[in-house]
Nucleic acid binder design. Structure first.
Length: 200
DNA sequence: AAGGCGATTGCCT
DNA sequence: GGCAATCGCCTTT
C-alpha cells in the first residue's frame, strides 16, 4: 500500500488555542476542530462532534480525589493527552486543559471520520457502522491507547494533533454528562447539532 | 491480599 | 431497554 506523503503540519493548532481559557470554554471550542493521528497505516482525520468537561472541583472527575498513578497526566499542563483504560477493555481520550497541578480535562466523545475512514473501519474489526461515535470507539478507530497517555499534542513533532476545522456555524446543545454516578446534574456535555462547510 | 468498580460497548430480548 | 464482558487501579483489611 502506498504511504501518505509527509504532512507539512501547516494547520496544526498552537498553544494559544488552549492557554488561559477555562475548561468549559475549551470543551465548546473543541467542537468542529479536527483530530489528526499520523499512523503507519495512514493519516487519520475526523471532526470532533461531542465533548465533556471534567473540572477540578467536580465529583465526576477522575482528578476529584487528587493525583494518583492512573490520573497523574490529568495534572500536567494543557495540551497533554490523558488516555485511560476502563471496563477492562476500553480506552478513552482526554485533552488536558489547565495549568500544571490543576486536574482538568475534556473528554472527546464523538468524531466524524473525514480521512482514511477505511483504515478506521479496519481498526474497528471491519464494522462499517458506528465507527467513532463513542469515546472508546473513537480511540479504537484512531488507534489511540494507553501508549499515547501523556504525550503532548502541542509539541511540534507529535503524531497526534489538532487542526482548525471548517465549521462556520457552530451550534451546539449543552446537557448532562453520560455514564457517571456523581455530578450528574452538571451540564458539561457539548454536542454539535448543525454544521456548515465554509466556502473555499 | 482481597474486593469493588468504572467518563463503555455490543449483543440479546 | 437490560446486562455481560473484562482488568487495572484504588480502597480497605
Amino acid at each position: 500500500m502506498k504511504k501518505d506523503s509527509l504532512n507539512n503540519n501547516s494547520n496544526r493548532l498552537d498553544l494559544n488555542f488552549l492557554k488561559n481559557k477555562n475548561t468549559i470554554t475549551i470543551a465548546k471550542n473543541l467542537l468542529g476542530k479536527i483530530l489528526v493521528h499520523e499512523t503507519n497505516e495512514g493519516i487519520l482525520k475526523g471532526i470532533i462532534l461531542e465533548t465533556e468537561a471534567y473540572l477540578e472541583d467536580d465529583p465526576a472527575s477522575h482528578s476529584f480525589n487528587g493525583k494518583t498513578k492512573r490520573n497523574e497526566v490529568m495534572f500536567k499542563s494543557e495540551g497533554h493527552l490523558y488516555v485511560y483504560f476502563t471496563y477492562g477493555m476500553h480506552y478513552c481520550l482526554n485533552i488536558v486543559t489547565n495549568k500544571e497541578n490543576i486536574g482538568e480535562a475534556v473528554l472527546i466523545r464523538s468524531i466524524k471520520p473525514i480521512m482514511n475512514e477505511n483504515i478506521m473501519i479496519k481498526n474497528r474489526n471491519g464494522n462499517p457502522k458506528h465507527i467513532s461515535d463513542g469515546p472508546a470507539k473513537l480511540c479504537q478507530a484512531f488507534n489511540i491507547s494507553i501508549k499515547d497517555n501523556g504525550i503532548n499534542l502541542l509539541s511540534k513533532n507529535s503524531k497526534i494533533y489538532l487542526e482548525e476545522g471548517n465549521i462556520l456555524i457552530n451550534k451546539f446543545i449543552q446537557t448532562e454528562r453520560i455514564g457517571i454516578s456523581k455530578g450528574k446534574e452538571l451540564r458539561y456535555r457539548f454536542k454539535l447539532i448543525e454544521t456548515k462547510n465554509k466556502r473555499k
